[in-house]
Computed example of a mutant assay.
Amino acid sequence: MNAPLPRPLIDRFNRRISYLRLSVTDRCDLRCSYCIPQGFKDFEEPEHWLTFDEIERVVRLFGLLGVGRVRLTGGEPLLRKDLAQLAGRLSVLPGIEDLSLSTNATQLDRHATALHAAGVKRLNISLDSLKRDCVTRVSGRDSLPAVMAGLDAAQAAGFAPIKLNMVVMQGVNDGEIEAMAAFCLARGFTLRLIEAMPMGDTGRNAHYLPLDGVRDQLVARFGLIPQALEMGGGPARYWQLPDGSGNIGFITPISQHFCATCNRVRLAVDGTLYLCLGQEEKLALRPLLRGGASDTELIAALRDAIELKPERHEFREQPGKIIRIMAHTGG
């Protein structure tokens, strides 16, 4: 007779934690204007990164505790050597039902086939413009050709769905939203429009634009209707074409926050477990992992940490509160 599984992770606000965003590196080959500052060098040293064995152990415990969705993030996760090997180890762990990846796609054409074979099911790809000069200005690199090659490789490898994440910035790329929507709908991608968040100085200077007016504009242009079924377990609210052949998501952490249904935590590459993107509550797991803690002790620490998960962020009320940049937290 199999032993009963431990009870799931439920916080003090009765939210069940079912989604882990796992950063495998804080480094990136781009310097997007809302994320990593130009000239930034304060990255974690590799000896502080969790090893693949440590990552596998933590994810196995999360799987036992009912966390079935895991997303590999960064920085840029494809900069971590042998990422497909790690993905293969995680995808077969008990309880892990969905393994996905967030990437800027600059390296994706070389890795798409191996990642798909390893069990990565879904991709989120950052792309803020279809104009080469705008992409260069926002990302700090002439990266659009590499991203397009990555998109082609992802489709050829069989990934579905492929979601394109576009951070909407007033006066930067807000005039390109309809063109991006048309591109995604034509190619079979899901467009997700995201409000810029005030993470560090870069995020606070990201030309925030609320998405309510943008949504109304796209509803009128494409005849979108609300989509009833959830997609991916994340924070996006989706609208679809009337025939169901395409959809667009809206992620609104500032104008319409989704904290009441937050089901996720973030594990940074240095082993810090962040309970909220916009607050400082956290658990340092690396000292426990390297100090000989048993699985029972680690599970107890995870349960104690979940009790610290705050009710909501305060991006609107205290936009200067969070000093760390997104790449340190994990996307």
Rank of each mutant, 00 (worst) to 15 (best):
Arg324Cys: 01
Gly39Asn: 12
Leu64Ile: 00
Met169Arg: 13
Leu164Ser: 09
Gly203Ile: 10
Ser91Gln: 11
Arg137Gln: 12
Lys309Gly: 06
Pro242Phe: 03
Glu280Ser: 15
Asp109Glu: 14
Ala206Ile: 09
Glu280Lys: 15
Leu90Trp: 05
Gly320Val: 07
Leu20Pro: 14
Asp109His: 14
Ile10Lys: 00
Cys262Val: 13
Ser91Val: 05
Val265Pro: 12
Ala186Gln: 15
Gly95Trp: 11
Ser126Cys: 10
Gly213Phe: 00
Glu307Leu: 15
Leu79Asn: 03
Leu191Cys: 02
Glu317Tyr: 11
Arg80Trp: 03
Arg71Met: 06
Leu308Thr: 13
Ser91Glu: 08
Ser245Thr: 14
Tyr238Trp: 08
Arg69Leu: 13
Asp201Ile: 12
Asp295Thr: 12
Pro77Ile: 00
Asp133His: 15
Leu191Phe: 03
Leu298Trp: 09
Val138Asp: 01
Gln38His: 14
Leu123His: 02
Glu45Ile: 01
Glu314Arg: 15
Leu72Pro: 07
Cys28Gln: 07
Phe250Asn: 02
Leu5Val: 05
Gly244Met: 01
Ala181Pro: 09
Ser294Tyr: 06
Gln256Ala: 13
Leu209Ala: 09
Gln240Asn: 09
Gly74Ala: 02
Ile162Gly: 08
Gln240Thr: 12
Leu289Val: 10
Ala260Arg: 14
Thr252Met: 14
Asp133Met: 06
Leu9Val: 00
Lys121Thr: 11
Pro4Asn: 02
Val269Cys: 15
Leu72Gln: 04
Met326Lys: 07
Asp174Cys: 06
Ile251Glu: 00
Lys81Asp: 02
Arg21Lys: 14
Thr329Ser: 11
Leu93Val: 05
Met199Asn: 09
Ile325Tyr: 10
Ser102Asn: 02
Lys81Tyr: 00
Thr73Asp: 04
Asn173Glu: 10
Glu47Leu: 06
Asn14Ile: 01
Glu178Pro: 05
Arg264Gly: 06
Gly203Asp: 08
Gln107Trp: 10
Pro8Cys: 03
Ile248Arg: 10
Phe222Ala: 01
Asn104Pro: 04
Gln318Asn: 14
Thr106Trp: 04
Leu115Asp: 02
